[in-house]
Design a protein around this nucleic acid. Structure first.
Length: 419
RNA sequence: GUGAGCGUAGCUCAGUUGGUUAGAGCACCAGGUUGUGGCCCUGGGGGUCGUGGGUUCAAUUCCCAUCGCUCACCCCA
């Protein structure tokens, strides 16, 4: 038997209503903040992600689905959306059409990692990007939108974490400080963290290893060494969140794994989804557009993982989807009535009723069982003496009461059903 | 990439200290009313016991390999 590729999942009819519900809320919230949807191709030239996300990141280093196509071009299935959105922004000169572009997306992403709870090789994200303003109110807006979406879904057990990475100059100065702090303690760090010391020193803060944590406990924090501008912006973000009644905590150790972040970064996490607890993450990327060949333009955005959010919703019983049901099931007695039943079903379907009939030539009893299983409000019977006499019986499945109608006057039945 | 656990019916799982035709519940189908649902009753279909090899008179059960799933590490949504 051929099975789906490792780390990919079918979304079956029994699951799809949860997805549709989530997507409808996402679209509603983004619309209320005046974000416009953008769709980009699922694959891009590999160089876009290598340059946009950063060569040194894990995503680029070991997680991308990259292949050479028939024209010898290196192609990569998108592992995240920001680089693609920025590419489209630059390619279509969106910045010249209006100074601020507010964009959102809902899209599959691809990363070749070992699957585990809340992690897949094809997964789905929704997210937003606001390109063209350095206002920290937009940073707050991102968090606000994500938080609103979670709230509308009924999620309660989530927490917002924010941090500021400052601008590159202040960050470099701080990194020097951190290097000095760690220099004589280096040998006591874990092997991974010694690697990070060379490659990306900030990420030593991410380590879950006890000896690293012990050492980092007294390390200087970036947030205490921010430049004035970053510090002010961070204050504005915090104040806006407070006014918006969004509880948050400052996490000076929140260092995100993508290279393009500047100033504000944030995550919203849930304890209800296993060890992959980040439901959404984002931040400001004021240098990325330039780096990808555009004019210097500030930007900020976030991405949220749909599978993880649905998992959190399930574990929290955040919302429930009502059982689906149909309006009318039309049964028949004899096979000769098949075409008649098909035609009157078409009539009611055109009148916007949800209608089902039997295609398996089953007994009336089996048809009734089916109607019941489908939660049909009414059943219309075709067959036997009444039919010979030009009549149809309509049964209300809730109370079992039957009414008789003229089979040539479907409009009368329609009007009755509409009540 | 590393580590651990698990693979028996569509689903959830029993079972075999190696021994005749491998079970249950749910789901599905049919019948109980030769034209009518939900409850109930009766019956039925469906399994190469993940795959390949080994040990044995005999393997679903023991051993090895392999594939898959799950969880965790790394990192992230």
């Amino acid at each position: 038997m051929i099975k789906s590729i490792t780390g990919t999942k079918d979304i079956l009819p029994e699951d799809i209503q949860r997805w549709n519900f989530l997507e409808s809320i996402v679209e509603k919230v983004f619309a209320s903040f005046n974000y416009k949807e953008i769709r980009t191709p699922v694959f891009e030239e590999t160089a876009l992600f290598a340059r946009g996300i950063g060569e040194a990141t894990d995503i680029v280093g070991k997680e991308m689905y990259t292949f050479i196509d028939r024209s010898e071009t290196s192609i990569t299935l998108k592992p995240e959306m920001t680089a693609s959105v920025v590419r489209a922004f630059v390619e279509h000169s969106l910045g010249t059409k209006q100074p601020l572009n507010k964009l959102f997306y809902i899209s599959p992403m691809f990363r070749q990692e070992r699957p585990q709870a809340g992690r897949f090789r094809q997964f789905h994200q929704f997210g937003a990007e606001a390109i063209g303003s350095n206002s920290p109110l937009l940073d707050a807006e991102m968090i606000q939108m994500a938080f609103d979406i979670f709230k509308l879904l009924g999620l309660k057990d989530v927490s917002v974490k924010i941090n500021s990475l400052g601008v590159p100059e202040s960050r470099e100065k701080y990194k020097e400080l951190l290097r000095n702090y760690l220099f004589d303690k280096k040998d006591n760090l874990s092997e991974d963290s010694r690697m990070r010391f060379e490659k990306n020193i900030l990420r030593i803060f991410d380590s879950k290893i006890e000896c690293d944590r012990e050492i980092m406990k007294n390390a200087p924090l970036l947030i205490d060494y921010l430049d004035e501008e970053s510090k002010n912006d961070f204050e504005i973000v915090k104040e806006a969140l407070t006014r918006g009644n969004i509880p948050f905590e400052i996490d000076p150790k929140l260092v995100r794994g993508l290279d393009y972040y500047t100033k504000t970064t944030f995550e919203i996490v849930s304890e209800k989804v296993g060890s992959q607890s980040a439901l959404c993450g984002g931040g400001r990327y004021d240098l990325l557009i330039e780096q990808l060949g555009g004019k210097p333009t500030p930007g900020v955005g976030f991405a949220a993982g749909i599978e993880r959010i649905l998992l959190a919703c399930e574990n929290e019983k955040a919302f429930s989807i009502p059982e689906s049901s149909i309006d009318l099931y039309i049964t028949r007695l004899d096979k000769e009535l098949e075409k008649f039943v098909y035609d009157i079903a078409s009539y009611f379907r055109r009148e916007n009723f949800i209608v089902e009939i039997d295609y398996l030539d089953r007994s009336v009893k089996a048809q009734m069982r089916e109607a019941n299983k489908l939660g049909s409000r009414y059943v219309l019977f075709a067959g036997g003496e009444e039919f010979q006499n030009g009549l149809l019986n309509l049964k209300n499945m809730a109370d079992g009461i039957q009414k008789t109608f003229d089979k040539n006057n479907l409009e009368e039945i329609k009007n009755y059903l509409k009540k």
